[in-house]
Amino acid sequence: MNQMQTVVITGASAGIGRATARAYGARGANVVLLARGQTGLDAAARDVEEAGGTARAVPTDTADPQQVEAAADTAVQAFGAIDVWVNVAFTSVFAPFTEITAEEYERVTQVSYLGFVNGTRSALKRMLPRNQGTIVQVGSALGSRSIPLQSAYCGAKHAVNGFTSSVRTELLHQGSDVRITIVQMPAVNTPQFSWVLSRLPKRPQPVPPIYQPEVAARAVLHAADHARRKQYYAGASTVATIWGNKIAPALLDRYLARTGYDSQQTAEPDNPHRPHNLWQPLDGTEGTDHGAHGAFDDRAHTHAPQLQLSQNLPRAVAMAGTAAVTLLIGRALRKHRG
């Protein structure tokens, strides 16, 4: 393993991006941290350096392609070639579709979908001339099976899947040694449930099973390592339990219509006026560092059998992992309901 890899991570100030940054720091990597919030970025940089890596924080709104390009230039100027680019940054709105404004929907799409497009474009611009490098997209089970109250986020994650598959086939056609892969994530205990814009009457929560951000970070590193070794392109690590293939779609729709609202809310009323991060970061210069973990440490798993299987099974089985792990979030919802 090259201990001096240069890694760019978007959404690096909190959640999965933050945990991934620290994991790469523990490998001694040069880690370029992209996010909007300066306070969170500075704390992430300290995490990386305490773990043993070298950090460079670059305040960036990934919805702006010019800002992403400038950040990529900064990474190259600071450390040389970019070896791994990890797209994580996202934002969302928890509400029925009819309660989300056009401007809010556009913003979620700009960050959670076009932010991945912008990051991928900037990465390829620097990787293709070298014919070397790996792009990891942090996807979601909700990109395979949508749920109520998250139409903007689900739409973006479906789009990331389609976009990534198209780019992957183009790279294959070109015979390129640049790799692009995607990691499908389950519910993760991140700060998003405390700072997302929500119009739900009760506080939002992830749908069990819930995993700690460090589990997701291990999946990201695993995906990047396997893609770099040219073992396989797609579905390198699937942590997610994906809804849907064992239940007829119409039945699952009805089931989610009955259970999907309550399962995404705690019993506690939410404050409709609490700050959110759709337009401005909550960990900005005057803000607070929110770290990698959210408010559900007592319910979050520290290990994922699906990830362990994908790390140990042969290539053919691992490539089939995305289909094989359709153990259904519906099962988790039934457990939650019961």
Rank of each mutant, 00 (worst) to 15 (best):
Asn30Trp: 01
Leu256Val: 07
Gly244Leu: 08
Val136Cys: 13
Asp47Tyr: 03
Val136Glu: 10
Gly235Leu: 00
Gln306Met: 07
Arg258Glu: 12
Thr120Tyr: 01
Ala267Asn: 06
Ala51Ile: 04
Ala318Ser: 15
Val196Gln: 04
Thr169Cys: 00
Val117Glu: 05
Lys246Gln: 13
Ala304Leu: 04
Ile180Arg: 06
Leu256Arg: 03
Gly155Met: 06
Pro305His: 08
Ala44Val: 10
Gln3Lys: 13
Asp297Arg: 09
Ser263Ile: 15
Gln110Ala: 15
Arg315Thr: 15
Leu282Gly: 03
Arg36Ala: 10
Asp289Arg: 11
Pro201Ser: 07
Gln308Trp: 10
Arg199Thr: 13
Arg229Val: 03
Tyr153Met: 09
Tyr255Leu: 14
Val32Asp: 04
Ala45Asp: 08
Thr109Trp: 03
Val108Ile: 10
Thr326Val: 01
Leu149Phe: 08
Glu69Tyr: 00
Thr109Gly: 02
Gly40Met: 05
Val93Lys: 07
Arg18Trp: 01
Ser13Phe: 09
Tyr105Arg: 14
Leu282Glu: 04
Val88Pro: 03
Glu104Pro: 11
His222Trp: 07
His173Gly: 12
Ser140Val: 02
Ile242Phe: 08
Glu50His: 08
Val111Ala: 04
Asn118Met: 06
Phe193Gly: 05
Thr190Pro: 07
Thr164Ser: 12
Ala236Cys: 10
Ala300Trp: 08
Phe296Pro: 03
His173Met: 13
Thr60Pro: 10
Val178Ser: 13
Arg130Cys: 02
Tyr105Val: 00
Asn271Gln: 02
Glu103Lys: 15
Gly40Trp: 09
Gly330His: 04
Asp253Phe: 08
Gln38Cys: 06
Tyr24Ala: 07
Gly119Arg: 09
Ala72His: 06
Gly17Ile: 11
Ala316Pro: 00
